[in-house]
Amino acid sequence: MTIKLKLELASGQSMKGAPLELLSKCVVIARAVVDEGGSVAFDAKSGAVELAVRVDRSILRTG
C-alpha cells in the first residue's frame, strides 16, 4: 500500500529533503524523504492500524 501526503508549514518554509518516518504503535514501519513540492509517499503493508508520521530525529544536531 502507498500512503501519500502533502506537507505545508504555516511558516511557508520548505520541507524539501526532510526524512520522515511512518510509525505504527510507536514502531517505524517505513521511511521516506519530502520532495521539492512538499509531497512524500510511504510504502507500507496494508492493515487496520493507527499511524503517525514524525521527522527522523537523526537529522537533529546536538551541541
Rank of each mutant, 00 (worst) to 15 (best):
L20Q: 07
A30F: 10
S14A: 15
R61L: 14
V40P: 07
A52G: 13
T2C: 09
E8S: 14
V40M: 06
L9I: 04
D43W: 00
P19E: 05
A41P: 01
M15W: 08
L9R: 04
A18N: 01
S24C: 07
V28F: 07
V33R: 05
I29V: 15
V28G: 04
S39W: 02
G17N: 08
C26G: 02
A30I: 02
V27F: 05
T62G: 15
V40S: 09
R61A: 12
P19Q: 07
A32C: 12
R57I: 07
A52S: 14
L23S: 08
G63Y: 05
V53L: 09
A48E: 10
E50C: 09
G17P: 00
C26L: 09
T62C: 08
E36T: 11
L20F: 03
R57V: 11
L51G: 04
S58T: 10
R31G: 01
C26K: 10
K4M: 06
A41R: 10
L20W: 07
V55A: 14
S39N: 15
D56L: 00
L5A: 10
P19A: 07
S24Y: 12
G38E: 01
A32W: 00
A10K: 14
S24L: 05
E21P: 08
S11E: 04
L7F: 15
A32Q: 13
G38C: 11
V40H: 08
S14W: 00
D35M: 05
T2E: 15
V49S: 06
G38F: 04
G17D: 00
L5S: 03
E8A: 14
P19S: 04
L23N: 02
L22H: 11
G17L: 03
K16P: 00
V53D: 12
S11K: 04
A30K: 14
D35Q: 06
V49Y: 13
V33T: 11
R57Y: 10
A48H: 01
D35L: 08
E8Q: 10
L22A: 12
V28K: 11
V40K: 08
K45S: 03
A32Y: 05
E21W: 00
L51A: 11
A30H: 05
G38W: 01
T2D: 13
G63T: 03
L9A: 14
A30E: 05
R57D: 13
S14K: 08
R61V: 15
V33F: 01
L23Y: 04
S24W: 07
K25T: 08
G63S: 06
C26M: 10
S11F: 11
E8G: 02
S46A: 15
K25Q: 15
M15I: 02
V27Q: 13
I59E: 14
L7M: 08
K45Y: 01
R54L: 01
S58Y: 02
V34E: 02
K6E: 11
G47H: 09
S11R: 06
L51M: 10
E50A: 13
A48D: 15
S58V: 06
G63L: 06
L20K: 06
E36Y: 00
S46T: 00
G12C: 01
D43A: 12
L22W: 02
A18T: 05
K45E: 12
D43G: 15
V53W: 12
A32S: 15
L23V: 12
